[in-house]
Design a protein around this nucleic acid. Structure first.
Lengths: 215, 215
DNA sequence: AAATTTATTATACAGTTGTCTAACAAGAAC
DNA sequence: GTTCTTGTTAGACAACTGTATAATAAATTT
């Protein structure tokens, strides 16, 4: 048997390609679809190579979950970093709206997220990854809220900030899910507007003072 | 080979046992865990029997998804039917709170839901089942909202009712997910209260007139 | 240019998967 | 009690699964 020619890739490059292929495979047909052979094919390598970069398929799945969450976080955070000076309200609004970008509001992204979530309750390692990112997300939200309350000159108890963060997180997640599942019925703009509007309702104040405030 | 003794069950009884076993299997370890052998063992039968009741494993999974959604719907609707005369606001509140019952606010229930959702985007049959139940749920919510607006004597456009239903649905789903994933951090009562409170904020009015309304 | 390292392939392996078939036994009909 | 129907079991099947191992070729070092 003659061996096919191949290209030697530097470690990081190939492992990231494998992670990307894993996410693509799961997105297309759930965790069941993501066999080592399917993943390898998508990455353009043979199945055996996976074990050269990851101790087991399980470890690859975990790495893929971590990478996905990191990517989502980075994507949302990028919406805040590229513009230097924004008011606290504007920053909060940007943060919320960033969750409805085309890259995030996508049925394959939902498929991915759901596949991972379905094993989080029963898989300790996956649960740990989830907890870490969930708390980081909610923490970012709480910080934005605290800054916003401060800018508004309102003294708000920490427990109230936490409560608002939980509710706003819920409405972001809920609208994101609805949007991904019914992409043809709900546009990204409408969802983002609804999320902002609902947030303003929950907080009892507007994020931007475009219109004059009513008593 | 001597054959083990067994009990002949009437058609419906056994197929429902199989569906129940399927849900239990998926809840415990996702769709991957739900092999015909595992399902059969949980139902106390041999694997071959599944094909006597369902044309394929795929059909069993679909039946299980349908049964789960129906069960969830029934569970929430029961909260409205057992008490005859309630105000429109009280009915709406009950409907919302029913989503945070112990039977619904459960990490295994989330695991189940997520496992199914993960294949909805890519599986047309599963997508059809989802659409049907999602629209039915939102429709119930819209009807409750319409009745509530009417009772309040406010004339609200249909589009606004729909928009409110989407937002309220989102907050129910989002809080439910957060609650299931962080059961130790968020009590059912707190979540239900948050959902009702957020709904009131979105609608701009209280569901029950316990306290006197402020200007 | 030769030697060394190691990323990559090819292949094998035991265990698991969904499906199928034939034998069988439980209950109903007569 | 005998016959008939069919729910149920047992077992086999090919295809697929994650993992392991040895050969091999692409870079790197010398």
């Amino acid at each position: 048997m003659t061996q096919r020619s191949f290209r030697r890739a530097s470690g990081d490059e190939r492992s990231q390609a494998l992670i990307k292929a894993t996410l693509a495979s799961i997105a297309e047909g759930g965790l069941q679809n993501a066999t080592v052979r399917d993943i390898a094919q998508r990455a353009g390598v043979t199945a055996g190579l996976i074990r050269h970069y990851f101790p087991s398929k399980e470890a690859l799945i975990q790495a893929a979950y971590r990478a996905l969450m990191q990517d989502l976080t980075d994507n949302v955070m990028a919406a805040l970093s590229d513009v230097p000076s924004l008011s606290a309200g504007q920053r909060l609004q940007r943060f919320i709206e960033a969750n409805f970008q085309a890259a995030v509001l996508d049925s394959q992204m939902l498929s991915l997220w759901a596949a991972f979530i379905s094993v989080v309750p029963s898989d300790p390692a996956m649960k740990a990854i989830h907890q870490e990112h969930y708390l980081a997300f909610r923490d970012s939200l709480e910080q934005l809220l605290t800054a916003f309350f401060q800018a508004q000159g309102k003294a708000i108890k920490a427990s109230e900030t936490e409560q608002a963060a939980i509710a706003i997180n819920a409405i972001i997640d809920g609208l994101w899910i609805e949007g991904c599942l019914a992409q043809h019925l709900l546009s990204a703009e409408r969802l983002a507007a609804l999320a902002v509007q609902s947030t303003e309702a929950i907080l009892g104040m507007r994020l931007q003072a475009n219109h004059e405030a009513n008593c």
